[in-house]
Simulated scan of single mutants.
Amino acid sequence: MKKIALFLAIGLLASAFSSCVVLSPKKYKALLARQDSLSTGWGESQVSGEELRKTISGLQKDTADLNGRLNELQGKYDQIDGKYTKLRSNSSTEISKLSADLKKREQRLQEVEEVLRKRDEASNKLKEKLQQALLGFSQNGLTVEMKNGKVYVSLTDKLLFPSGSIVIDEKGKQALTELAKVLKQQSEIIIAVEGHTDSQKINNLGQIKDNWDLSVLRSTSVVRYLTDTEKVPGIRLTATGKGEFQPLEANTSAEGRSRNRRIEIVLSPKLDELYDLIKK
């Protein structure tokens, strides 16, 4: 480029000499100014070219950095895409597993509901049989009802025992005999005998110290009669005393206290089938 500028200057001078033998001072100065302008332009072009090269170099570096960053992002994307694909596969497997578990639970629930339905059906039939068998004692304070799938036979103390006694009287024995006839036909029934009292303190009853004693001893008297006399298998019975702590009514009246003094015979169907379902 420098040589070109020089040749251009020489050309201009030659042209000037060819047209005129002698140059005027004015034209000579103009030629010199033209030469300076060309030299300045050449210098500036040199500077601009250097800046362009620096700019190009910077752009090339930026491009390389961007390519590296793009490759890094592509690698992360591929990694995330792989995890997503794996997650979708696992999710499908989990959904299938949950669906199978849900179906299994629904089946077990249906089985449990069927067992409970059979239990309630059996309890209702037992209740009807007991009501028929014990109908003659209903006026003496005997009731039969069903609660929570269990049959409750409630006998007031005046039906079973003389006042303050743990010895069953004749009317009480008759009621228990009729009850035993039904129980011996229902071998799948579990029998719990519960003694209950009012809140009045015990006075002068010899070996009976308090209401706990009275409730327990009366329940064991009933169990002994059912097992020893009526031959109901003892393995099916339990005897418990609740004392004064599960009253039916407030102990503020003679009638309420009379209702609270009672023997409750709780009859529960065996639920082995239900327990086996729960264990699964």
Rank of each mutant, 00 (worst) to 15 (best):
K97F: 14
R53T: 12
I265N: 07
R257C: 09
M146H: 03
N211D: 09
M146W: 02
S19P: 00
Q110T: 13
N140Y: 08
L73E: 08
R105M: 12
I168R: 03
A254H: 05
L267K: 03
S19F: 15
A192F: 03
A239N: 05
G256L: 05
S92W: 00
Q174M: 10
Y77A: 07
V21C: 01
K54H: 05
Q246E: 15
A239M: 05
P269L: 13
D101P: 03
T238E: 08
E230D: 01
V232G: 06
V232H: 02
V144P: 00
D157S: 13
K118N: 14
L205Q: 13
H196S: 10
C20L: 12
F7T: 07
L274M: 11
E94W: 12
K279A: 15
G11I: 03
L205E: 15
L277F: 04
I278V: 15
D65H: 08
R117A: 10
Y152M: 09
S91D: 13
L52S: 11
K150Y: 08
L214R: 12
I189N: 07
V144Q: 00
A5C: 07
P162C: 01
E121Q: 13
Q246P: 00
K150L: 12
L155M: 14
S165Y: 05
T93W: 02
T197I: 00
L23G: 03
L13E: 02
Q74N: 13
R259D: 06
T220E: 12
K270G: 15
E72K: 08
L6H: 01
I235E: 13
A122F: 11
E51R: 06
L52G: 06
S163K: 15
K97H: 12
D272Y: 02
T40M: 01
G241T: 05
Q174E: 15
M1A: 14
Q107V: 11
G75L: 03
L134W: 11
T40A: 09
I263N: 07
G195I: 05
E128Y: 01
G195L: 03
L214F: 03
V112I: 12
R218P: 13
R34S: 13
P233G: 07
A9Q: 10
S96C: 06
L214N: 07
E106S: 14
K201S: 14
Q60L: 06
L73K: 09
E113R: 15
E170Q: 10
K26S: 06
L226M: 07
L98E: 07
N140M: 05
S154H: 03
I208K: 00
